[in-house]
């Protein structure tokens, strides 16, 4: 009994970690609606947001009721990476966040899809979506990095600013059978290659902040996250026990 429930807990925790990443990033991308620099990006960003929301719904449903988990947990109970909760900033910040996360997510889902664990079926579908997300982020990193002087500078600032949130991605998540070290070196190789091709320099700062690495996974978040949840949950919480 104890081993089964421990396993269930690990599965639930892993589902929450992956589901919260997708949920929170989807929400951030949703904030772009109506504000994108060009119409094609309205479509693209919404498209990515929808893919992520779809993934989040499957994953949260593996852990419980999707709406209860999304709308009734408080900040300290969310297991998403600090990276995905970072505010959109300018387009370069959004792209840098997308680049870091989608390269990670692609590698992670590819590995999960190849295994026979409980996340394999979801990962097999998600990896195809994330391949598009990654391509989108890489193409924009190249265009902004190797575009104009202004865009180069903005893109460099963005990759530098978010660099310190990238270390937490490789803290092992219980319930996920993944070789995190291999994942991390593959991630570094890919991201460094894209940055170089985009004529950007690889940031030199630490890849974790003063918080212990893996903070988001432990429910320790950054300040903007609370406000994001306040907005996201307000209506649902105002009408307890109703259906929509």
């Amino acid at each position: 009994m104890t081993t089964t429930s421990a396993k269930d807990t690990a599965l639930t925790q892993a589902a929450l970690a992956l589901g919260d990443d997708a949920l929170v990033l989807s929400h951030r991308l949703g904030e772009w609606a109506g504000n994108a620099p060009v119409l094609e990006e309205e479509v693209a960003l919404a498209n990515i947001a929808l893919d992520l929301l779809g993934q989040a719904r499957v994953l949260l449903s593996m852990a419980g009721d999707e709406d209860e988990l999304a709308f009734l947990r408080e900040e300290r109970a969310f297991r998403n990476l600090q990276l995905v909760e970072q505010p959109n900033g300018d387009f370069a910040h959004t792209i840098a966040r997308q680049l870091y996360f989608s390269v990670y997510q692609h590698l992670l889902h590819a590995e999960l899809a190849a295994g026979d664990g409980p996340f394999a079926p979801l990962a097999a579908k998600a990896v195809k979506e994330v391949d598009y997300h990654r391509d989108h982020a890489e193409q924009w990193t190249l265009r902004l990095g190797d575009g104009t002087e202004v865009s180069h500078e903005r893109m460099q600032r963005a990759v530098n600013a978010l660099w310190r949130f990238t270390g937490e991605m490789f803290q092992p998540v219980e319930g996920l059978d993944v070789n995190w070290q291999v994942l991390e070196s593959a991630w570094l190789e890919r991201v460094e290659d894209v940055l170089r091709r985009a004529t950007l320099s690889v940031p030199e700062g630490p890849r974790t902040g003063a918080w212990s690495a893996g903070a988001g996974r432990q429910g320790l978040h950054t300040e903007p996250f609370g406000r994001m949840l306040a907005e996201m949950q307000h209506l649902h919480r105002s009408h307890p026990g109703t259906t929509w």
């Binding site: 190249l142 902004l144 202004v150």
Partner: peptide, 11 residues
């Protein structure tokens, strides 16, 4: 978004 469109055109 002007700087983004300019970057894409320059690239």
């Amino acid at each position: 978004g002007a700087w983004v469109r300019e970057a894409a055109a320059a690239y």
